[in-house]
Structures are given as C-alpha cells and as structure tokens.
Amino acid sequence: MADAAIVVDAETGQILYGQNDEAVLGIASMSKMMSEYLLFEAIEEGVVSWDDEYEVTDYSHRISQDLRLSNVPLRRDGSYTMKELYEAMAIYSANAATIGIAETIAGTEKEFVRMMNDKAKEMGIEDAHFVNSTGLNNSFLLGMHPEGTGEDEENTMSARSVAVLTKALLDDYPEILDTAKIPELMFREGTPDQIRMVNWNTMLPGMDHEYEGMDGLKTGTTDFAGHSFAGTAKRDGIRLIAVVMKAVDTEGEGSYKARFDATRALLDHGFGFQETEIMKAGQQFMGQESIPVAKGEKEQVAIAVKEPIRLLAPSSGTYQAELELTEAAPLEATVEEGQLVGKVRVLDSEGSEVEYLKGEKPAAGVEAIETVDRANWFALSMKGAVDFIKGLF
C-alpha cells in the first residue's frame, strides 16, 4: 500500500496502473535523479568532466559528518572527482556528495536548485518544487539551506511526474543503470577513508528483496516523504518504471520492506501485460473504410491507419480502436494520398482512453490512401443540377 503509485511502460510512457498519481507529495532522495540528470547533461556539454575535482567546502564537509544522514565522509581539506561523488550519490544516496556535484556544476546549491526547477519545466513537469539538491528536509542542512528556501521545506512532486523524470533519465542517459545496478562498492578503497557503500535498492539481484530484471533506480526516505522508490526492471524486452510514495505495510507502518513489497506488486501487475498490435499499418476501420468528399471526382476517399499501433495490453480484457476525424466530413477536394484526416483513440474494456505520461499518444494517424482530384467545372455543374432536381422530389 502507498499514498500514491504508478507503473508505466518505459518505452512509450503508457500508464498501466495509477493510484492517486497526480497528488503532490514529498519525494526525498528520489530528487537525486534530477541531480543525476543535470550531471550527465553537464558532462555531455563539457561543463565538467568525470575527472574534475571538487574542493570540499565547509557546507559539504559539515553535512558529510552528520551520522543521521546517508553519507560518505569528506575531508575538509580533501578533493574528490566527479566520478567518485557520482557513484556515492547513485549507489549510497550520499547527500554531501550530491551537494559537491551541485556546487561544482552551478557554483552554489542555490543556483543548482534553480537549474533543477527549470529543467523540470523543460521536461513538462509543472508540479515539481525543488528546494535543495538532495531531497533532505532543509532542517537537516544545519542552517545552510539554499537562500530563498524555507528552513523546513522539502522537495515535492507527484508520482506521475517522478515517472516522467525517471523516463527522461533512462531515455537520455541510459548509462545511469551501469552504476545504479551495482549492489555495493567501496568508496576510496585502500585509503583510511574507505567506506563500504551498500545500495539502498535491495531489489537488485542477490540482495534482500531481489526482483528479476531489477537494475535501478532511486530510493527516498524522510519523515515527510515516508518510504518511497522509483524502480525500473526489464524482462523479455519490456522495461517498466514503477513509483511508490509513502508506502506502508498492512499495519499502516512505513518501512523499507513496505516500499519494495508495493513496488513488487506494481511490477508484477505491469509484467502481466503483453505487447499487442491493435491495428496494422494500412488497416481500415470496418464500416468506416472511406469518408465523403465534396467537389471531387469521387464522392468518397478511402482511409486507413498510417502506422501500426502497438501497446501493452492485459492478458485478460481487450482494447479497441476508435476512429476520430480531425477534419469535418465531407472533405473538400482535392484530397491527396497520404493526407492526414484523423487519428485513432484506443479504449480499454471499460471505454476509457488508454493514458500516457504527459498526454502522449501512440503513433495513430489515419490517412487518405488514394488521391481524389477536384472535379472539373462541367462535372460540378452537372452534379449541381442533378442534386437540385433530386431536391425537388
């Protein structure tokens, strides 16, 4: 059970199940997915490199020494590469390491937070509210929280928006999974500062709550956000994204196990769907093989689906396709072959349209499959005369 949950097809964004998924809730360390996105983007654009070194500030040093938080200890006079800090953030959810990345990219965490909020809007996420780079409650930042944010604020977003962020990260930087799937890693191995980093995602293979195909992505836990998780798994060529927020057990208690049990249920549900071709390219609608044409050499133009429509469908229950014209009939000639005249709406067994993240729809254009030229003046005159006479009788 969870306050909010969603599971989607990672390739298309098709929503397979959603519960309270548009409610804005705390996201805790799932926030670090946005920090990861901005890091990969900065690497791609040459703003920073994996070998760039971060000189520890008083802020990140003091946070790194807080034993209440997930952290790797940073020396006040130390320097750490972006690769080291990234691995600590992705595997161990290290908060001071995340601050170090933010300060390296943007100069200050305040500026980095502005970048986080701007990037969310660029992704089409309207309900995101980032106040820091880590997802901690600002009260844990020892009075050094970003200027302009409240001292007890926390990052918030809806489960649907977390899924949008997760999909964007997987689409644009799939190499994130190379690190996210590591069960454990030694930080600064062979030095006095070495620390064993065990992945908080214990649904990974060989861990306590292992799940077949699981390879990411980010847990989150605070008092405000509860036990939350954005997970992804791949089986038989299908990748799913599952998000649970504020998961609890049957007694109403939040726990690591509760969030992974809720995620397991979501993924099991999603993997019960099968890839299905609803309509083939060139297929026509029975009883709607053509639509009327005005002032044409023919009175009808044949239409068909332009591209195949494929989606995930439950093993029990069926989907049906419905034609929706985008231009009022009759069309006025000339109608060109390939001209788009409508689209396909895919409905579930209860008659509701299949939903997608951000309102996307499958490729579902309906086109004319022949050209109907405009009739010449004589033909139009003769037809007008015939229609007039028919009208008289």
Rank of each mutant, 00 (worst) to 15 (best):
L340R: 15
A159G: 03
A281I: 10
L331I: 08
G213D: 05
G216Y: 06
E353N: 06
L217G: 03
I369E: 07
Q14F: 07
D152A: 06
R68Q: 12
E111A: 14
Q65H: 11
T108M: 03
A363K: 14
S352C: 05
L69S: 04
N155T: 02
M207F: 08
A23Q: 12
Q284A: 15
F40Q: 14
F140Y: 14
L169K: 01
L331K: 09
E45A: 12
D66T: 09
V7D: 09
S315V: 14
L323C: 04
I176K: 01
L38A: 03
H209D: 13
L340N: 12
E299P: 03
G135E: 10
S352N: 14
E360D: 12
S228P: 02
Y54A: 05
L38F: 03
R374T: 13
D77L: 08
A5Q: 11
S35W: 07
G220S: 06
I195K: 13
P292E: 07
E36L: 07
W377I: 09
G18C: 01
V113C: 03
A180C: 10
A120P: 00
T156C: 09
S64A: 13
I241T: 02
K280P: 00
E22H: 14
R239F: 10
A281L: 04
I182A: 00
G143N: 07
P205D: 11
Y17M: 12
E55T: 15
A88D: 10
A90K: 10
K234C: 10
M144A: 13
R264M: 01
D261G: 00
Y86E: 04
E87I: 10
T108N: 02
K280I: 04
A385N: 01
M207K: 12
T232L: 08
L392S: 08
S64P: 09
A163Y: 03
E299A: 14
E297A: 11
V366D: 06
V386Y: 14
L323R: 08
T371C: 11
D21N: 12
A90H: 05
T166F: 04
L169W: 05
E109W: 03
L392V: 06
T108G: 08
F229R: 08
A368K: 05
A163N: 01
I91Y: 07
G78Q: 09
E87Y: 15
L85N: 04
G287N: 12
E53I: 11
G148Y: 05
R235F: 11
E36H: 05
D171N: 15
I369P: 04
S29M: 03
M34D: 04
L136N: 08
P146S: 06
Q19D: 12
S93L: 08
Q339S: 01
G338V: 10
H145L: 11
V354P: 02
E322P: 00
S228F: 00
S29P: 01
T221N: 14
S29G: 02
Q339L: 00
T219N: 09
E189C: 02
E87Q: 15
A230Q: 06
T98S: 13
M115C: 02
D51S: 15
Y80Q: 06
K246R: 13
L217N: 06
N201A: 08
L170N: 05
E251W: 14
K32C: 06
G107D: 14
V131F: 01
K306Q: 13
